[in-house]
Design a protein around this nucleic acid. Sequence first.
DNA 1: TTAATTGATTACCTAAAGGTAACTGATTAC
DNA 2: GTAATCAGTTACCTTTAGGTAATCAATTAA
Lengths: 113, 113
Amino acid sequence: MEHKECMSALLPVRDTLDIIGGKWKILILISIWEGNKHFREIERSIPKLSTKVLSKELKDMEENQLITRTVLNGFPVRTEYRPTEYSKTLQKVILELQHWGANHRKKIFGREY
Amino acid sequence: MEHKECMSALLPVRDTLDIIGGKWKILILISIWEGNKHFREIERSIPKLSTKVLSKELKDMEENQLITRTVLNGFPVRTEYRPTEYSKTLQKVILELQHWGANHRKKIFGREY
DNA sequence: TTAATTGATTACCTAAAGGTAACTGATTAC
DNA sequence: GTAATCAGTTACCTTTAGGTAATCAATTAA
């Protein structure tokens, strides 16, 4: 049985799941896609999300070039987070996950949400 | 800012990630797709996978109708795990994750695996 | 000077995922 | 009866993800 090729093909799958997996990452990305730019603004747009987790996730997303971070100096310091064009390439992936999940729920529970 | 609709659209995304996320689920599914049928066979096909985790994941996958489980009585008891036709609907999703991840690695590190 | 706001960081804790290893029950071959 | 094989289960431990709450630095308005 040939495993090596298929197993190494899973490294990219792992990478993707690391980037969009977890409890908050997609939520944060969508909030930013929707136009939320500032730290507090994003935080308040997602109920129960803590500053600690948000801070960490934003760093990860910046590293992965999904968002840009710009510090604007002014009265209270403001930071602007913006989605990159590149981040949009994730939309197809997320849509695929969404479609499969929606169909799956119908199959398993015989009803939708 | 309209959040409610987009946030509820994420429930299916969560469902899908619960089903294919984690360290072993996709590996196990692929092993079964490849033709491995028996518990020990699947276990041995995936280095470092323990019986405990395999046992749990197989149960989850059976609940989600991705595999069927049949007990064959014979000398050493044998169990047959088979992929369902339905499980194949995940291939498109997994391929999407794989493509995005492969392209992402090129973008971030400038090289492939 | 005090309070308030923004954008965080830090220390500490809990819960969930996963790992380790020993063990069970059934059966058969020796 | 002893060993081996298959298909698991159980108890226990470690690691990681995530939650809670206090704190900090900068700035401005009252």
